[in-house]
Design a protein around this nucleic acid. Structure first.
Lengths: 207, 207
DNA sequence: TGCTAGTGGGTAGTGGCACTATCCGCAATA
DNA sequence: TATTGCGGATAGTGCCACTACCCACTAGCA
């Protein structure tokens, strides 16, 4: 399989494939001559993965690079991989709102009350704190309890998801399923929420 | 309130405020002279909203513009506003995968089986179909039922959300709450899922 | 053997997005 | 009166994700 086959099978233009190779998002092919190399199914699969994470998941190439590093370590314990994937998925900017540390403490207390056992400093908790700060800035008189219902459902969803990957025996598949699942089902959940909103909105207010 | 006050109160640099004014994301102030104008609380609030949708919600300025158009029509029936908000929130690219129409049909059938009553051609359903296509391209042998559990929870969440805005009497607040809630609680739900994943992963595999 | 399409590798250029800088004549304020 | 700030306009910046072009070289066919 040469670069043109890779391009045709995946629908990704050749210059872009070359770009991914340069950027290290795609490992180099097997060299057969000074200016020739062959690629295999794994390259094609990786190319699909990169494109899917970028287009469906909306990740930056930098985030994708970090996620792929997690994939390169299938020997890691699964919860390490999950942590790396979660960190990789975070967008990098940090809003430096002065009231964020206080909100973060509130969220930490609330998390503890929920009985969730998390590594201290988990990045996703910052996102929740940031959302709380944003709500207040927009005039909502909200405490962390406003997220209770969401947390309830998130817990049920996550429990099933973790149970699912725990069933998988092959560690490499488990790692990949974790990364793909985190991104793709995250997107699916968001879309399904919108669909459900539309359904209930129609039921209540619709024609 | 002059432009410098607006900037100081919001933390947004003056050139950026000017930029938002030019782009129509912020309505012009009350002119008091050829080169003077005053702004009020509503401008500050709008500025906060634009920044929050951009930074926390990750929306493009183009999406924000569309969302703001929905806000400009508080007389609309709420399910219209919701539809506009949902359309505005979609990222604009359309993956032209050849197997997407078929997947879309599968999703439509599945939606009907669920008993969800939706406008035909709802954009969010395309996103679900796209996710299904992506999963298959990555080797998952999946049908729409793979989303069953997510749909279950999304339904419960959305029902509570719609019930909440239905309680609000002031139509203007209801519209704004709808837009803010759709974006911010969407983000919160995603983060909470990651937190819950970490909790359950630790419980099962952790130290 | 000769010919041409294709290849890997490198450098440079492109387009879009979200700002950011600078300049101008005028207004406000000390 | 002098300085600071304002609004409006035009132009420039930095980043990101490609995309174009060029080169010497190779594969595959005539």
């Amino acid at each position: 399989m040469r670069i043109s086959d890779l391009s045709r099978e995946s629908g990704v233009p050749i210059p872009t494939v070359k770009f991914y190779l340069r950027e290290g998002l795609l490992p180099p092919g097997q060299r057969t001559a000074r200016n020739q190399a062959t690629y295999d199914e794994r390259h094609l699969r990786r190319l699909h993965l990169v494109r899917t994470l970028a287009e469906v998941g909306g990740l930056s190439l930098e985030s994708i690079r970090r996620v792929l590093n997690a994939l390169a370590r299938p020997d890691w314990p699964l919860h390490e991989v999950l942590a790396v994937a979660h960190t990789a998925l975070r967008r990098d900017e940090t809003s430096s709102d002065p009231s964020l540390p206080a909100a973060r403490l509130e969220i930490d207390t609330w998390i503890a009350r929920r009985g969730w056992n998390l590594a201290p400093g988990t990045p996703a908790a910052d996102d929740v704190a940031e959302t709380l700060v944003a709500l207040r800035r927009l005039g909502w008189d909200a405490g962390p309890e406003i997220f209770d219902r969401y947390a309830e459902h998130a817990d049920a969803i996550a429990e099933a998801e973790i149970a699912y990957v725990a069933e998988t025996n092959d560690p490499e598949s488990a790692v990949e399923a974790t990364v793909i699942g985190t991104v793709l089902f995250g997107r699916a959940l968001a879309s399904l929420r919108l669909l459900a909103q539309e359904h209930h909105s129609r039921k209540r207010f619709g024609p």
